[in-house]
Design a protein around this nucleic acid. Structure first.
Length: 959
RNA sequence: GCGGGUGUGGUGAAAUUGGUAGACACGCUAGACUUAGGAUCUAGUGCUUAACCGCGUGAAGGUUCGAGUCCUUUCACCCGCACCA
């Protein structure tokens, strides 16, 4: 005897405890079964806790994990925490509380929230990036990067000792490396360099290196930000202004891997959009560098430019250099100094934000210098303009106004020549440039008549032949800044000696742990709080590096640590890495496209080069779950007070929104929240709650749609009973900031984890963004109650028995097995839920009581709703968990039909249906259809022009 | 501007190779039962119509016996990048 009614609280608590006690989801690194690795992007444990959007991906991956487990795989499905990060540090700055403490508390909260949803994580493998046992290996990988260089000839990373050996034997003349340009030297010279000189040279080779650059400096945060942390010249977090500032920084040479990162995309199963974003970010462009001799230059120099369109070189009528080009000052002629120097000065001081917001506004100045066009011998003027970027290509371009829109607008503004060199019938290049890479060359000497694609090759061959330049591939991708002037991150295991030469800590000195500090505040000078701890910074060997690693360091390799999380000899044992291999299925947000997902690929390729990994892509298949949005509720506040009082106005009464400010309202105060068909509003209670919540508006007047509320008293228009102050409802982020966060705990309490799991899947395709809307969850809850009723009668007795299986029930079962198996594999989880509903509806209609059928159905349901499935499974006398059951095999024979209700369409429109045997031939079908009374009515005595019979599908008559 | 994506009932959505558009749910309407509930069950529900007919997948063309699905043009919204030569 058990509960007569479906009691989710009892069942879910019981099984979550049972699973934990039995260590049901523990997984071993050794098995005769094939391994399958299912991974979620691990969360940053923020103080806000999980909201209903977070589990979306976890639920999907849990379903796949459970499905794979039941299909004979040994499944690795771990979870952990990306635990270093700015919010905990900001909180520490405000409160003095150690970030480790805050982080541990937040993790505990996350864990309890996750546990309530019934995931099949193997928690014995949990990793936390902020734990010394973990970041020891993050530091170890950094050491490897420092100790390796990228050999272009072997196309892989190699040990720096091998490079030094080459230098000692033959200098660097035959070395091709990825990195900065280095002057040639011979072995003799190398041997005479001092330690300082040698290290300066090696820094151009190492994959982790120090380099002075301009960085994104944010004064308010007191730190340097990565490019992707800056949006429109403001910090992504906090929205503070960001300026360019020179600073010495650690970098990782990701650019060495640019081509491989690009090529690798073809072999992985990721969405096209993410691949495109990465391709874009890497930004490969093929072209040539060309040298344009500078006219009358005392040093005899040539200006090197990069172009992807060497076919248009005869149309180059001027040159443009970036304001920060190293020769800018030299090239400014005395008689242009006033104007050009002033321009350079102005451009340098312009903030990133200003520059970006005024893209369409062309600016620049003539330097007074000229180049000699290497093909025509003509003199072309050199301009300086900030539409040419110092950091890309050579920082200088040949301008072809006829075929480049940017050059065109510049030429128009400065009244420069526009020479057409590519044929184009449609438009006049004097009016607008023709940028397309199609057509034939004209006005181009030996290139005339050639197609653009061929002309590019010919031009490059000519350039090569005459030693005017060379074919060149450029990438937009920049080396990755690797230092943060922050406390809460992995310390970089480096010590600088008295000559400021960096050296690594020994492996035995790892992990280099974070010391305790008195203050977490940025020092303001740009150094991290660590710099203030003298006895930590100063060691007998020298001064420690005080920068810490960026947030993405720990997350770039965490998927490896799960394979062997307690290993203290190596990041993970070779056996474990070999057994699990790449992540088979990875689920996470698309917002990490150019961050985590690129850096992980880079580290994986590097670790593969140094033989730590037997594969060089981390994530075989990636699915990006869409964001679950919230509904942001706000009320309109008059900007002007009336008689010293704030006035809120019902949204229907707002005529000119410019006179109002929108004030967010906590969604708990709103009536009819989340119902899309009825507008939400504040009633008298909501108004009271709002005023208590925001005391600064305690004296506010609410102008409602049906009267006014003054001092909590409703003055009705007419006979209205209750005030209605309509709110403004908009779809937006679910976030603390908008007071619209829905905690999964609340859903679990009211409806249960199984309902939450099914409902989140039922909302729509996993990848789509969708607003969280509670209406509809009842349907899923009802489905589970119906499922329960198939197994348990009103008295609480278990129903299923061994009576013979009904043919129809077998058909329902096997149709369900087939559909769900297929849909789980193509991650169409919303349609699986529909399929379950159909099955339960059919079983109910069929009054199916066959235990074998219903138990098989339970197995198919169990990845989605594990608790109820486990309970009903146990009630059927099973002792082993349903999670370990074998997925039922699908048998086609139960689906075979002997007849088909053919849709009969006439001129493409379905008019009737005729039940016909599937054994009939085309001709027999045609004959049967033509005899049908309904068909004859439509034919009206005429012969059909044509009859199309698709056996098993449809019949179409053309009249 | 460039790249990627999405447009289907009142709502979330389905339709996997071109073959009955709207499965499955929510909501709504009517009814049954009743311990009166936010429970359960039954029937209906794209628009239009008394019914038949007709119309219907953002819009306009096209291919086809047949188009949500393929092709061309176009509009709207979302995401990413943004002077990358």
């Amino acid at each position: 005897m058990s509960e007569a009614h479906y009691n989710h609280r009892f069942i879910e608590h019981k099984w979550q405890q049972n699973w934990r006690e039995r260590k049901l989801y523990r997984v071993d690194n050794q098995s005769s079964k094939p391994g399958y690795y299912v991974l979620d992007m691990f969360p940053y444990p923020s103080g806000a806790g999980l909201h209903v959007g977070h589990p979306l991906g976890y639920i999907a991956s849990d379903i796949v994990s459970r499905y794979k487990r039941q299909n004979g795989f040994n499944v690795l499905h771990p979870m952990g925490y990306d635990a270093f990060g700015l919010p905990a540090e900001q909180y520490a700055i405000q409160t003095g509380k150690h970030p480790a403490e805050t982080t541990a508390e937040n993790i505990a909260r996350y864990r309890s929230q996750l546990d309530r949803i019934g995931f099949s994580f193997d928690w014995s493998r949990e990793v936390r990036t902020c734990e010394p046992d973990y970041y020891k290996w993050t530091q170890w990988i950094f050491k490897q990067l420092f100790n390796h260089w990228y050999n272009i000839k072997s196309n892989r990373a190699e040990h720096i000792d091998n490079l030094v050996a080459i230098f000692e034997n033959e200098g660097n003349i035959n070395v091709a490396h990825a990195g900065g340009e280095v002057d040639d030297f011979i072995a003799e010279e190398w041997l005479h360099y001092n330690k300082r000189q040698k290290e300066d040279i090696l820094q151009h080779y190492r994959l982790a290196f120090i380099h002075e650059t301009t960085v994104n400096w944010c004064e308010e945060l007191g730190t340097v930000l990565a490019n992707e942390e800056v949006k429109d010249g403001l910090s992504e977090r906090g929205g503070y202004p960001v300026i360019k500032k020179p600073m010495t920084q650690w970098f990782l040479r990701i650019t060495a891997y640019a081509q491989r990162l690009l090529d690798g995309l073809d072999a992985i199963d990721w969405s096209d959009s993410i691949k495109e974003i990465q391709r874009n970010w890497i930004g490969r462009s093929e072209g040539a560098t060309v040298n344009f001799p500078i006219h009358n230059d005392t040093a005899g120099r040539s200006l090197e430019i990069f172009t992807t369109r060497p076919d248009t070189i005869f149309g180059a009528t001027f040159m443009v250099i970036a304001p920060e080009h190293e020769w800018t000052a030299d090239l400014i002629h005395a008689d242009q100094a006033d104007e050009a120097s002033a321009y350079v000065e102005w451009a340098k001081n312009r903030s990133e934000r200003e520059r970006m917001s005024e893209v369409k506004n062309v600016t620049g100045a003539f330097t007074g210098s000229y180049c000699t066009h290497p093909f025509t011998g003509k003199q072309v003027p050199i301009y300086v303009a900030d539409y040419v970027l110092g950091g890309y290509g050579t920082g200088a371009i040949m301008a072809v106004p006829a075929h480049d829109s940017r050059d065109h607008s510049f030429a128009k503004k400065f009244n420069l020549d526009i020479i057409q060199v590519i044929e184009n019938d449609e438009a006049d290049v004097q009016e607008a440039s023709f940028d397309a890479k199609t057509g034939k060359c004209i006005n181009s000497d030996f290139l005339n008549g050639l197609d653009v694609t061929i002309a590019i090759k010919e031009a490059i061959a000519f350039i090569d032949d005459k030693k005017l330049g060379k074919a060149q591939v450029n990438f937009k991708l920049r080396d990755a800044g690797f230092g943060r002037q922050r406390y809460w991150g992995e310390p970089i295991p480096v010590i600088f000696d008295d000559d400021n030469i960096p050296s690594l800590l020994g492996d035995n000195d790892l992990p280099l742990t974070l010391p305790t500090v008195d203050s977490y505040k940025p020092t303001g000078s740009g150094a991290s709080p660590l710099a203030a701890i003298d006895d930590w910074v100063n060691t007998p060997q020298g001064r420690r590096e005080t920068d810490t690693m960026p947030g993405w360091a720990g997350s770039s390799w965490y998927f490896l640590r799960y394979m062997d999380p307690n290993n203290d000899q190596i990041i993970a044992s070779n056996d474990a890495i070999k057994y699990w291999g790449q992540v088979d299925f990875y689920v996470g947000g698309a917002e990490h496209a150019t961050g985590h997902l690129l850096y992980s690929r880079f580290w994986t390729k590097f670790l593969s080069d140094i033989n730590v990994l037997p594969f060089d892509e981390p994530f075989k298949k990636l699915v990006n779950q869409g964001m679950i949005q919230g509904i942001v509720e706000s009320i309109y506040l008059r900007k002007e007070k009336i008689d010293g009082k704030s006035h809120f106005v019902s949204s229907g009464l707002v005529d000119n929104p410019a006179d109002f400010t929108q004030i967010p309202v906590h969604v708990d105060f709103v009536t009819d929240y989340k119902k899309t068909d009825t507008p939400s509003f504040l009633n008298i209670d909501g108004i009271r709650q709002f005023k208590e919540w925001r005391p600064e508006y305690s004296d506010a007047v609410f102008e409602c749609s049906n009267g006014k509320v003054i001092d909590g008293i409703f003055e009705a228009d007419g006979d209205a009973i209750e005030p209605i102050c309509y709110t403004k409802s908009e779809i937006g982020k679910m976030s603390k900031r908008w007071f619209n966060v829905v905690n999964p705990d609340d859903i679990c309490e009211e409806y249960g984890a199984d309902t939450l799991r099914l409902y989140e899947m039922f909302l729509g395709p996993l990848e789509d963004a969708k607003p969280w809307n509670i209406s509809g969850i009842d349907g899923v809850y009802r489905f589970l109650k119906k499922t329960w009723k198939l197994f348990v009668d009103k008295e609480g007795n278990y129903i299923p028995n061994a009576n013979p299986a009904d043919k129809k029930s077998l058909k329902t079962l096997h149709a369900t097995i087939k559909k769900v198996s297929e849909d789980v594999q193509r991650i169409s989880l919303n349609t699986c839920v529909s399929t379950f509903m159909i099955a339960v509806n059919e079983f109910t209609d069929q009054k199916c009581q066959n235990k074998e059928i219903l138990d098989q159905f339970l197995i198919v349901l169990s990845p989605f709703a594990p608790h109820i499935a486990e309970e009903l499974w146990e009630m059927g006398g099973r002792e082993e968990s349903i999670a370990l059951a074998t997925w039922p095999s699908f048998d086609e024979k139960h689906l075979v039909e002997d007849s088909k209700n053919y849709p009969i369409s006439i001129n493409g429109k379905t008019r009737t249906n005729i039940e016909l045997s599937l054994s009939l031939s085309k001709d027999e079908i045609e004959a049967a259809v033509l005899q049908d009374a309904e068909v004859q009515k439509w034919l009206d005595g005429k012969q059909p022009k044509k009859v199309i019979v698709v056996p098993g599908r449809i019949v179409n008559l053309v009249v």
